[in-house]
């Protein structure tokens, strides 16, 4: 019986998600970017992103160079998808770490309270006290420039956000009568946390994951823009935007396409976040 029940409910929210036009558009945008990243990661880009063709420097978009070339004659399309792949890797790793650590600490702290919660809240307040980009800069500066270093820096900056996003709803949900009911029914604490608390705090966390992925992409771009992320000659969307600034007046494509990629993936992730928020909240759905 419960297998049927579970299947029905999960089919329900997937079904509901696909009823939303903006959610579907967001998903398509994100999937396009993910596909391009995979193509790049598999070395299937039309042109080697590092290959320099000085004769073709600063050419506009054409059949050979879809997005045109930069000042070294490198293919901007291949570099853009390479940069996207790097950005997405950093975003996934950093948000993955931040969400796992932050949600774990937030749920445990919020549910059990006491000194443990005090410690968690104080630690996240300390991190919150610093402006995000400055903190990321400082951490990257002391760690290094590899994409893993960048990811760790961004993860540290975003962990407190996940602590807050998880802890707040847990404080509310643990006082709800349905949690008290299952305590009276004698369910174990892990069961209560996993089956009754987590599902009811999941929606804001999922939305936060989608939003944080887009912020992480912006942060990685920002770090690279400032010269502290991906190092030349490797491609990064932030670095490309930074390098294109003096060229933008006469080679618009060098600034436009990397910026477009950043915009598309950020907008796409935001739309997905909104769609998930609606789909995961049964009360928001129309009956059925």
């Amino acid at each position: 019986m419960s297998k049927e029940t579970k299947a029905a409910s999960s089919k329900d929210w997937v079904h509901y998600y696909f009823k939303s036009t903006s959610g579907v558009i967001g998903l398509i945008l994100v999937l396009i970017m993910v596909t391009l990243s995979i193509i790049s990661a598999l070395n299937l880009a039309p042109i080697d992103p590092l290959e320099q063709n000085p004769v073709d420097a600063l050419k506009g978009p054409s059949g050979t160079y879809w997005f045109g070339t930069d000042q070294f004659g490198r293919d901007i399309f291949s570099r853009s998808i390479d940069g996207m792949s790097r950005s997405l890797s950093v975003a996934l790793l950093s948000v993955g770490i931040a969400a796992l650590v932050g949600v774990f600490l937030g749920v445990i702290g919020g549910f059990f309270g006491g000194w443990l919660d005090g410690l968690v809240v104080r630690a996240s307040d300390v991190i919150f006290a610093f402006p995000a980009i400055l903190l990321a800069l400082a951490i990257v500066n002391s760690l290094g420039n590899s994409w893993i270093d960048t990811s760790i820096a961004i993860a540290i900056v975003y962990t407190p956000i996940f602590i807050r996003v998880a802890r707040g709803p847990v404080l509310t949900v643990k006082e709800m009568d349905y949690v008290k009911s299952v305590r009276v029914l004698g369910f174990s604490t892990p069961r209560i946390l996993i089956r009754h608390v987590m599902p009811n705090v999941l929606a804001p966390i999922v939305v936060q994951i989608a939003l944080s992925l887009s912020w992480a992409i912006l942060t990685e771009s920002g770090l690279s823009f400032l010269g502290l992320g991906t190092q030349p000659p490797d491609a990064s969307l932030g670095l490309m935007v930074s390098e294109a600034q003096p060229l933008a007046a006469f080679a618009w494509w060098s600034l436009f396409f990397p910026s477009l990629f950043i915009t598309v993936v950020v907008v796409g992730l935001n739309l997905v976040g909104d769609g998930l928020r609606d789909a995961l909240d049964p009360a928001r759905r129309s009956s059925g």
């Binding site: 019986m1 419960s2 029940t5 029905a8 409910s9 709800m176 349905y178 009911s181 089956r195």
Partner: peptide, 11 residues
């Protein structure tokens, strides 16, 4: 508020 909103009543 006494029933978990994410669980069917049978479950």
């Amino acid at each position: 508020s006494s029933l978990n909103p994410r669980q069917t009543i049978g479950a």
